[in-house]
Amino acid sequence: MSEVVLRQVPGLPALYRDAVLLAARRRFRGAAVPLTVPEIRYRADGVRVEARALTAFQHLLGEPARDTLPSAYVHAVAFPVAMSLLARPDFPLPLLGMVHLGNTVQQSRSIAVSERLDIVASAENLRAHRAGTQVDVVTEVSVEGVPVWTGRSVYLTRSVLLPATADTPTPDRPAETPFAPPVPTAVWRFDGSAGRRYAAVSGDWNPIHLSAFSAKALGMKRSIAHGMYLAARMLAQACPGPTDDLRWSIDFATPVLLPGMVAVAFTDATPSGNLQGTPREGKQLPESGLPGRSRPGGAGGTGSAHPDVTPAGRVRTDIVGWSRERSRPHFTGRVERSA
C-alpha cells in the first residue's frame, strides 16, 4: 500500500468544492472509475489541536471544557485526512451524496489537547448494499508511535452498484421490525442553524448540513443534522468524564431534518453481575419492544467491532434516538467504558 503524506490537514470546504467539480466532470465525461478501493493511505503527522476550537466544540456539546479531547472531536480533527482519500478522482464512490451509515470507535486512553496527533486514513471492504455500495474508512490516530484512537466509518453511495457475484450476493432488505418507541429519558432540540453551528466547531462544512437551499441542491428535502453531531451528543451525555478505554458505536437509520426534535432514551445495559453492588432491579417502565441494534444498513451494518458481550468490570449504555412524530428511529448507539 502506498502512502500520501499531507504536510498540513486540508480544509474541508476546499475538498467539498473539488468534489463538486469532480462530480461535474464525471457527469459530462462519463469517466470510468474502477470499482476497487485505491491501495493508498493518507497520512498527516504532528497535527495540533487548537484549544479555542476545542472549547467551542465542547461548549456546543454541553461538555465541560476539559484539557482532553472528546472522542467525537478526535474524529473531527482526523476527518479531513479521511476526506482527502475519499475525494480522490480514482475513488470508486463519489464523495458528494455519500450517506454516513455509522461509526465504531475504540479509544485506549484520553488524549490531551497538548498532544500532537499522527493520523492515518485508509479505505477497505468495498461491498454491496441493498441500496447501493458501501465502504469502510478506517482512521487511526497515534501519539508518539502508539495508536490511541481507531475509528471505522461506514459510508453508502446509492449511485454506484457493484455487480453481484456468487461470492458477494446483493443483500436483501432486512425484515422490517416495527419500531416501538421506548420511554424517552431526554429530548434533543435542533434549530434551523444547528448544522451551521456544528460545522463551525467541527470543520465539516458539507452543504447538506448548512441550509435548506444548499441541501436541496443535493437532493435533500431540508438540511440535516450531522451524524457526528448526534454521536458527539450521545457521548457527551453517556460519558462526560475521562475517555480512557472507551468503545462506542453508532448506526444511523434516518436523517434528522432541521429544525427538528429527537427523542432519546439512555439505558444502562451493563450486564448484571458485572459490577458488584449495583444491581438494576428497580422499577422501570416495561421495555416496549426496543428493536435492539437495528441495522439500518442491512447485512454488514457498520461491521461493528463490538463483542456482543460486555466484559466484566465495564459499564455499557445503550442509546436510541427517534422521531416522535414519525415514530421512526434516527440512530442506535452503544457506549462502553471501564467502570
Binding site: G62, V183, P184, T185, A186, V187, Q237, K283, Q284, L285
Partner: peptide
Amino acid sequence: EPRTGLSMGEHQALTTAAW
C-alpha cells in the same frame, strides 16, 4: 434539565408512570 432537555414535569411523568 440542562442535560436531558426534558422539563421537570416530563421527568416526573416518567417516574409517575413507572410506579
